[in-house]
């Protein structure tokens, strides 16, 4: 199937007058996202860490919708996992 819900292939960025700022914003968004996933893993199941990290990831998803989707970056649909196949 060519189009999977967990996309693995990047698409080209969508042309925008905001291209320069978008690239910079997207880098920041990805840093937050990776930091939240690292935090979650390091928490080893501590609910106070895991649940708050999930909330950060849900908010970060809104940044991805507003910014990163323009960059054509592949991502899971569920914000709390890096790979939807693990759901």
């Amino acid at each position: 199937m060519p189009n999977r819900w967990t996309e693995t292939e990047a698409a080209p960025p969508i042309a925008s007058p905001y291209a320069e700022i978008l690239a910079e914003l997207d880098r920041g968004v990805q840093e937050i996202k990776q930091a939240a996933f690292r935090l979650k893993a390091a928490g080893e199941g501590i609910q106070a860490v895991e649940r708050n990290a999930d909330r950060i990831l849900a908010s970060t998803r809104m940044l991805e919708i507003n910014v990163s989707d323009m960059m054509g970056r592949p991502r899971s649909l569920a914000s709390w996992t890096e790979d939807d196949a693990e759901l």
């Binding site: 189009n3 819900w5 925008s16 989707d69 323009m70 054509g72 939807d84």
Partner: peptide, 21 residues
């Protein structure tokens, strides 16, 4: 034109999600 491109990418993704899940 760019808005339609963004919509198409997102539409394809959510349709695939619904089909799979």
């Amino acid at each position: 034109e760019q808005l339609r491109e963004l919509q198409f990418r997102k539409f394809r993704r959510i349709v695939s999600w619904a089909y799979e899940r």
